[in-house]
């Protein structure tokens, strides 16, 4: 399973701004709600999160200490 941005579908207003800034086609509109498509092309640029006007997208980072 590939980690992808987490989308709160209840918050998504279907504006499509995230899709417009995503350079790897990892986001698609399904029934007026954005859904993430699993792809290794997603480089975690987090632009989708930055432009979302409703805070529906979360690009989570796990914080770890190198052994």
């Amino acid at each position: 399973m590939i980690e992808m941005p987490v989308i709160d579908q209840a918050k998504c207003n279907g504006c499509g701004l995230c899709i417009s800034v995503c350079s790897c086609q990892a986001l698609v509109l399904v029934g007026n709600v954005v859904t993430a498509v699993e792809t290794t092309d997603c480089g975690w640029c987090t632009l989708c999160e930055a432009v979302c006007p409703t805070g529906a997208i979360r690009c989570l980072y796990e914080i770890v200490i190198e052994e």
């Binding site: 987090t46 999160e49 930055a50 805070g55 979360r58 690009c59 989570l60 980072y61 796990e62 914080i63 770890v64 200490i65």
Partner: peptide
């Protein structure tokens, strides 16, 4: 913040966004 939320050896994992 990074130090506070860094996963420890007990296996606890923390996830944060830039926001």
């Amino acid at each position: 913040i990074l130090l506070e939320y860094a996963g420890d050896k007990s296996g606890e994992r923390h996830w944060l966004t830039q926001q």
